[in-house]
Amino acid sequence: MSACSLNANITENLNDKVQSSNFANGKFYNDKRTPGFEWGKTWKILKRYITEPQVNTEPSAVIPVTPMLTEDLLSTEQDSVWRLGHSSMLLKISNEFVLLDPMFSERASPFSMMGPKRFHQPPISIHQLPHIKAVVISHNHYDHLDEASIQQLADRVDQFIVPLGNGADLISWGIHPEKIKELDWWQQTEISDITITATPSQHFSGRGLGDGNKTLWASYVINSPQTKIFFTGDSGYFNGFKEIGKRFGPFDLTLIETGAYDKMWSDVHMQPKESLQTHLDVKGKKMLPVHNGTFNLAFHEWTDPFDQISQLAQEKDVDLLTPKMGDRVTIHDKNQTLAWWQPLKN
């Protein structure tokens, strides 16, 4: 059967095969019903982008990036993580590499010549990456599920782990169906001695005008015998984080969405104070804020997520990590990271 036929079959049979309690009438829903991006709201947001002055939403100086070398990655023995940009993270745990939301393209957009453009280049190219045991995707928005990156990774990855319904896109892009594992919330899969569990988040999905919420979104618990990591993906703040902490916490490291927030979409993206509360809810030991520093996706200053979360972490005595893109963070050691964005403030 061709990839196109498989893709069509997955789409046509979605209502029949999905048993998720969050799926009804061809769409997925949050536990708490959240306002959608209907035309009226979308127009108001677009009008703001056209008329509202954007001040310091992009850096005026070069963002520092630490180049990553393949040999250094392979020789690393301690469980570690590296920020690649935005929410893209490279993890090495139990001597296996796991890649979260790989986004290596120049723009977070369906268009090559327009849309949010990167502030910096990735600290490593895809062809320089070591073999990846698993790619984990949180949801299908362009800044998290990047077609070009997935296609380039196709032969370098053993398994693609995605929320329900997202396999169809990967198949249409050339990924073999046997390499794809779809998960509902609270379902898990094992890769070597690493257990990856899809957990709830409060968000939405869609890549075009007619596919809103046709695929699921998720956060993830990534657990090995030595290390436990929580990754929010994109989410508004909700009580589900307490449940995740109750079931799986404490976590050695949390990767928490902290950026691209606004009052107009507060149900689906957290303010920094909510990001910190999420870290506390899931019982995290160290917090690394993501979803910032790479694209302009909101109206706040590009340094605001770093400034706010740093102040809040200090007040709550939270062990906060703010590495430069490409810097290695060893999960079980004490790490010292600097406020690298401060000299770049306009």
Rank of each mutant, 00 (worst) to 15 (best):
G165S: 05
F104K: 02
E106P: 04
N292F: 03
S266T: 11
F37P: 01
T232P: 08
H120C: 12
Y142E: 11
P116S: 06
I256R: 03
M287H: 12
F251V: 01
N95M: 02
V329I: 14
Y220E: 06
W39A: 10
G249F: 08
P177R: 14
F23N: 05
H86E: 14
Q54G: 09
S2N: 12
K214A: 08
P130K: 08
I50A: 14
D281E: 08
S275W: 13
L153W: 06
V157G: 10
N13Y: 05
T197R: 04
K285M: 13
I331S: 01
I161E: 02
H300Q: 13
L344K: 08
S2F: 03
I222Y: 06
T258Q: 06
Q336H: 15
N239L: 04
I132E: 07
V318T: 09
R83M: 15
S87C: 04
P343R: 07
F306I: 13
G85Q: 02
Q188C: 11
S109G: 09
W217D: 09
F104A: 09
G293M: 11
Q78K: 15
S5E: 10
S219T: 03
Y142T: 07
Q78S: 10
D234A: 10
P343K: 12
D79L: 01
A3R: 07
K47R: 15
V318D: 07
T322W: 00
I50H: 05
D101V: 05
P163W: 12
S109V: 09
T70R: 14
I194V: 07
E257F: 03
K246N: 15
T66E: 13
S219V: 08
M89N: 03
P35E: 08
F248I: 09
A218Q: 04
P102T: 09
I150Q: 12
T51Y: 03
Q151W: 00
E58F: 14
L288S: 06
S205I: 07
D211N: 14
L312N: 10
E178Y: 00
R33F: 12
W186F: 12
L297M: 15
M68S: 03
L90K: 02
E77T: 13
Q314E: 11
I256P: 00
T51S: 11
E178P: 00
S109T: 14
L183H: 04
F37W: 05
F23D: 07
G167I: 01
F251D: 00
H120Y: 06
N213Y: 09
M1Q: 01
N15D: 07
A198T: 03
E12H: 10
I45C: 11
K44I: 13
T70N: 10
I331W: 01
S219C: 05
K92I: 13
N166W: 04
